[in-house]
Amino acid sequence: MSKRDVAHHVSLAKLQTMLGVSRGVVDGLIDLGLVTPTRGPRNALRFSFQDVVLLRTALQLRTSNASPRKLREALARLRRELPDELPLSGIRVAAEGNDIVVKTGASRWDAVSGQMLLDFEVAEVAGDVVLLEATPERKSVAVSQAKQQYDLAESLRATDPSAAVRVYRRAIELSPEPFYAAYVDLGALLCEQEHQCGDALRVFDEALALFPRDAVLHFNRGVALDIMERLDEAKTSYEECLALNPEYADAHHNLAILLDRRGDRRGLIRHLNAYRKLSG
């Protein structure tokens, strides 16, 4: 093992001090094959950056609703995806709704489903791996970066829609909080390209998991489903929009047309009258 390798590994005693973990827990994870320390001088266990992140995640997941099977799946996936060394951008593991999301720079991926409350960052200080709570300064920088990406996407919408889609997604990934406007505009842009309505629907579903009582998102979801000829689901989305905002004129208009296609003359007249009243 080189001097550089030693600098990036920690001993069992230091690991237990950092994380407050028992030897039994460590041995259990080693037995599962999810934590794989190496051996140092005098056969002492040495834990890598990957091992530290996996163990810290396991400790956080113990208090979640994740089953033992899902816990093993989460740790196994983390093990496959984590880099061998700490990236300059750091790694952030966080619970978002029912998903465990791992962010490495611009990348963002799910580890497992389950109710969670997990939010930490990994950084390197003087050769050691440490865990840092997110600070207001980091969040402020991330908010600014996400806003810059959003503004760039807005400027690209008309001239390069494909690039705009990528930049909207980047804004959502960078934002430390759910980025409502980016979700709405990304979904709407995708929906303008008929062959991407399925992608738009996934964006709206993701956004609705974060903003379940937003009429605009329900309306836009209805539009995507309408274009895809999934009329029953579109009708439900328009109705959910109107339940939240009965004065949403465009939802009345689209629902009137949909009901006419389905032969519902009474529904057509009711929603068409509502639309004319609201837009007149």
Rank of each mutant, 00 (worst) to 15 (best):
R92H: 09
R92T: 14
V93N: 03
G97Q: 01
G97K: 01
K103E: 09
T104D: 05
G105P: 02
R108N: 06
W109S: 08
W109K: 09
A111W: 01
S113A: 14
G114Y: 04
M116S: 08
M116H: 09
M116A: 11
D119A: 04
F120W: 08
A123Y: 15
A123Q: 13
A123E: 15
A123S: 14
E124A: 13
V125H: 03
V125G: 00
A126I: 00
A126W: 00
A126S: 03
D128A: 05
V129L: 04
V129D: 00
E133S: 03
E133P: 05
T135E: 06
T135S: 07
P136V: 07
E137F: 14
S140T: 15
S140I: 14
S140R: 13
V141C: 10
A142E: 10
A142T: 14
V143D: 10
S144E: 11
Q145A: 14
Q145K: 12
Q145N: 14
Q145Y: 15
A146M: 11
A146W: 07
K147Q: 15
Y150W: 09
L152Q: 01
A153R: 02
L156N: 02
A158P: 14
A158W: 11
T159E: 15
T159K: 13
T159G: 10
P161M: 11
S162W: 04
A163D: 12
A163S: 13
A163Q: 12
A164P: 01
V165G: 01
R166G: 15
V167C: 14
V167P: 06
Y168T: 02
R169L: 06
R169I: 06
R170C: 04
R170F: 01
A171M: 06
I172R: 03
I172G: 04
L174R: 07
L174G: 06
L174D: 08
P176Y: 14
P178W: 09
A182K: 05
Y183H: 05
Y183L: 07
V184K: 01
V184G: 06
L189G: 02
L189P: 02
L190K: 02
C191Y: 04
C191R: 10
C191M: 13
E192H: 13
Q193A: 08
E194N: 15
Q196L: 02
C197Q: 09
C197F: 04
